[in-house]
């Protein structure tokens, strides 16, 4: 998502060539959403250990394809694979880091965090049922705001994306209408609006189009100084998008409830929870054909869990809670094994 335009060009170029990583380097491919933090971790890790990371940020779909074809040591996806698919390929899955998705608007006289929306209203706007900014539903949530009677210009992603998956998953959760008419996927058939490429594309279009509304990853709203909105969460409380509210959503989740920690953090319970929080996952083989490479990759992830929290927060990501990390590392020792049946990862 970040650096998408570069990533697409580079990704297309490498997606069809078999990449052979340098002997010592870790090789992975997938989601663009966590790419900036993976790159930052990898940079620090290389300085410490001399082992680099060759990560192709070609998108979650590409990451899943590449790990299934065994061209990389690990795949990365913003959309967790369901249990049966993990079993089919013999893959292990664990969450690496989290982030938040925020609605952004371009309305004269409205400052960041002033407008309040709820899930049902957002769903109706993105379905084309609410078309004016002074609609009763929006007025009811914002009795004090001065809302123009201009048309709402909806901006969505044109490329397939984990952000879209998490956004539409949330809308499906809160609106049965959305669930039956549109659904949740990395790309959907949008009833209205204009499509823009990547998070930066949506950010630019919202910034340039008066009366527009879109959704971006939190960091983009901050970097582009966009007007993000507050949201009404499941508990009926109004929350602002902050690291704390993202973390609250993660803490409230029951991570062991899904195979491969595939918990989607949309619409989590809790007074403080931001309703559109999203995780991103790593995919690895349980019985890798190259145990040495997988062992090195796990060492890197363990290092990142341990030392990477501050770097993640600097880039507006949310680190995984310690309790989840503990469960993940237990899974590593239990599930990821070499040909001899012994775990290839051992906690120091």
């Amino acid at each position: 998502m970040r650096f998408m335009s570069y990533a697409v060009a580079a990704g297309l170029a490498v997606a069809f060539t078999v990449t052979t990583a340098q002997a010592a380097d870790l090789s992975g491919a997938g989601a663009t959403f966590p790419y900036p933090i993976y790159a930052k971790w990898a940079d620090a890790y290389k300085k410490e250990t001399g082992i680099g990371l060759n990560y192709q940020s070609i998108g979650s779909g590409g990451g899943i394809k590449q790990i299934e074809n065994k061209t990389v040591t690990f795949g990365a996806s913003d959309k967790p694979l369901p249990g049966d698919e993990l079993d089919k390929y013999g893959l292990a899955q664990f969450p690496m880091v989290m982030g938040g998705i925020v609605p952004v608007v371009n309305l004269e006289g409205i400052k960041p965090g002033e407008l309040v929306l709820d899930g049902d209203t957002v769903a109706k706007i993105f379905m084309g049922e609410i078309t004016k900014w002074d609609d009763e539903a929006i007025k009811k949530l914002n009795p004090d705001a001065k809302l123009p009677s201009s048309a709402i210009a909806v901006v969505h992603r044109s490329d397939g994306s984990g952000t879209t998956f998490n956004f539409t998953y949330y809308l499906s959760d809160v609106s049965s209408d959305w669930k039956s008419k549109v659904g949740a996927e990395t790309a959907v058939e949008w009833p209205v609006g204009i499509g823009a490429k990547g998070n930066e594309g949506v950010a630019n279009n919202v910034a340039n189009t008066k009366g527009s509304v879109g959704y971006v990853e939190y960091a983009y709203a901050l970097q582009n100084k966009l007007t993000y909105t507050k949201m009404m969460n499941k508990a009926g409380k109004t929350v602002a998008p902050t690291s704390e509210s993202f973390q609250a959503a993660a803490a409230g989740a029951d991570w062991s409830s899904q195979p491969g920690f595939g918990v989607i953090l949309a619409n989590q319970p809790g007074d403080e929870s931001w309703p559109m929080t999203a995780g991103t996952w790593i995919l690895m083989y349980k019985q890798p054909s190259d145990p040495a490479a997988s062992s090195e990759a796990l060492k890197f992830f363990a290092w990142a869990y341990k030392n990477g929290d501050k770097m993640a927060e600097e880039l507006d990501y949310v680190p995984m809670p310690d309790s989840v990390v503990e469960q993940v590392q237990k899974m590593w020792t239990n599930d990821i094994k070499g040909a001899d049946g012994k775990p290839i990862f051992a906690m120091n």
């Binding site: 490329d159 397939g160 790309a187």
Partner: peptide, 18 residues
């Protein structure tokens, strides 16, 4: 109105086509 072209669709969607 917004629309799309063949090449724009391919460029947009190929990377994340699942």
């Amino acid at each position: 109105a917004p629309g799309t072209t063949i090449s724009a669709s391919i460029a947009n969607e190929f990377t994340e086509a699942v």
